[in-house]
């Protein structure tokens, strides 16, 4: 399968998981963001350009299935996809522990950008309370999902790439 096909399938699978299983898997008010996890992993495997484009599309889809303003998550995931791609190209090491940790940081940053945007757009909420009670647990939740998804997605997205080889080595 080509890169376009595997990326599209990954994105659609993440959207399906988000719509079908996201709401029921809410824990203490925190809903998992499968689309964000997919964007960061795609950016890790494919680099910053693909991460940026996929981030924009995934963010727009997230906004469209939600109920608040359309656009903030598109911006947040565009930036996240770009930064995750850059981080991967700059500091990637063998194994999956570092990528998953970086994914946690990237998802926290993404939630932070989203919060800034929706707060600026007038959604009434305490920024720091939301950061502590939603964004931080959300990032930990994303890391938990990534532990399961990272090996599967890297294998699916990039057979033969350094990311996939290193991940598989570390799991053996």
């Amino acid at each position: 399968m080509g890169r376009f096909t595997t990326t599209t399938i990954s994105l659609l699978a993440a959207l399906l998981l988000q719509v079908v299983f996201g709401p029921p898997l809410t824990i203490l008010g925190v809903t998992p963001n499968f689309l964000m996890v997919a964007v960061i992993i795609i950016a890790f495997v494919r680099g910053s350009k693909e991460g940026t484009i996929v981030g924009f599309i995934a963010g727009l889809l997230f906004d469209l299935v939600g109920t608040t303003v359309v656009g903030p998550m598109a911006l947040a995931l565009t930036l996240t996809g770009f930064v995750a791609g850059i981080l991967k190209e700059q500091i990637f090491a063998t194994g999956w522990v570092l990528p998953v940790s970086v994914l946690g940081i990237a998802s926290l940053a993404s939630e932070g950008i989203y919060l800034v945007m929706i707060t600026a757009l007038g959604v009434p909420m305490s920024f720091f309370a939301a950061l502590a009670t939603r964004a931080l647990p959300g990032a930990l939740y994303a890391m938990l999902i990534a532990v399961v998804c990272f090996p599967i997605m890297t294998k699916f997205l990039g057979k033969g790439t350094d990311v996939e080889i290193n991940t598989m080595k570390s799991l053996r």
Binding site: S48, T52, V70, G71, L75, T78, L79, F82
Partner: peptide, 19 residues
């Protein structure tokens, strides 16, 4: 690959969509 060009275009597009 021009990632910065894509980044700029998509950020502007996101803000335009929000507006």
């Amino acid at each position: 690959r021009k990632p910065y060009l894509w980044l700029t275009i998509l950020i502007i597009l996101s803000i335009a969509i929000t507006t």
